[in-house]
Amino acid sequence: MPEIRSSPVRSILRRVAIAALLLVAAVLAVYLDRAGYRDNNGDGMSLLDCVYYATVSLSTTGYGDIVPVTASARLVNVLVITPLRVLFLIVLVGTTLEVLTERSRQAFRIQKWRTRVRDHVVVVGYGTKGRSAVNTMLADGTAPERIVVVDPEQDMLDAASAIGLVTVHGSGTRNDVLRVAGVPRAKAVVVAANRDDTAVLVTLTARELAPDAHIVASVREAENVHLLRQSGADSVVVSSETAGRLLGMATTAPSVVDMVEDLLTPEAGLAIAERDVEPTEVGGSPRHLSDIVLGVVRDGTLYRMDAAEADAIEAGDRLLYVRKASPVAEG
């Protein structure tokens, strides 16, 4: 779960520094009145003896080999050493209690989130492809808290959490990890693994948990597309072939590549989007609309503009069109 908090190392170092300051204060108090203490060996109180006495006193060990004998020394123990001992214990015990409380609170927050979340999007893998997918969804208006990122690398999760995404640490090939991410109640699952075999296994696991979710997977090689389809992916994107086509077009028609990149970039320029038809548009031709319509989605099937089914708009259709892109809000 995303949460802004201080570094654990910094928190521990701060507590160690406080404990050291309390110990120094206790040593100073004992050393200034060292004549009021008696050591069993009878050789007086050295600086090391003062450090030893302060240490065993603050840690409540108290061996009894050094004791305050004068009224002033005992008064210092009551008014100075005892409060320092209490503060010292608060620092030590407080660290343990904070860890236990934080774990319990985090477990409660996760359980509460899992019982309430519905129709969210789970992104498995937060590499280049996963981040691009998230940026596109954010540009299309998806709230950050409706996106869950699953990745085994903590630095990837930290980057996702920094922009408000929900994060789950672990491998997307594991059934229990995907359950924690809420895959059984997810609207869609984006499989952006770095390896094709991993993508197949993640897709199989996700489909088993969420039979009705829309699963989109990315593969490097076209020969593995049928494996993803058989594993339950609704849509498969071949990253290597797509990049290869753009490279080929760039040699003869670089402006076409610029336009494609513009359409695929959510931050600025133009973008491809999908919307419901307006009641006033039913019965008309999508070619006569002010929007640049690329296709008509009817009963889950996409019909390009050159298809006869796209000649007239029907109630319940959705239009695939070109719109002006809106910038992604900075986290």
Rank of each mutant, 00 (worst) to 15 (best):
G170A: 01
T173L: 03
T173N: 05
N175Y: 14
L178Y: 03
L178Q: 06
R179G: 12
V180F: 06
V180S: 09
A181N: 12
A181W: 01
G182E: 06
P184H: 01
P184F: 09
P184I: 07
R185V: 11
R185P: 08
K187Y: 11
A188Q: 15
V189C: 00
V191S: 03
A192L: 02
A192Y: 11
A193E: 14
R195K: 15
R195T: 15
D197L: 13
A199W: 04
V200H: 00
T203G: 04
T205I: 05
A206M: 00
R207T: 03
P211H: 01
P211K: 02
D212N: 04
A213L: 05
H214K: 07
I215E: 07
S218L: 10
R220Y: 06
E223W: 10
N224Q: 11
H226S: 15
L227E: 12
L227S: 14
L227V: 06
L228C: 04
S231F: 05
S231N: 07
V237M: 02
V237C: 01
V237G: 07
V238D: 08
V238C: 14
S239Q: 10
S240E: 09
S240Y: 11
E241K: 12
T242G: 14
G244Q: 02
G244F: 00
R245M: 09
R245F: 11
R245G: 07
L247Y: 09
G248M: 08
M249I: 02
T251C: 10
T251K: 08
T252M: 02
A253K: 10
P254N: 01
S255F: 11
S255H: 15
V256G: 13
D258Y: 08
D258E: 13
M259N: 08
V260C: 01
E261R: 14
E261C: 11
E261N: 13
E261V: 09
T265E: 09
P266K: 06
A268W: 09
A271M: 06
A273H: 13
E274W: 05
V277K: 02
E278M: 13
L289W: 00
I292P: 04
I292A: 12
I292Q: 12
L294V: 07
L294Y: 09
R298Q: 05
D299M: 09
G300L: 04
T301Q: 12
Y303Q: 05
Y303K: 03
R304F: 08
M305T: 00
D306A: 10
A307K: 08
A307E: 12
A307M: 10
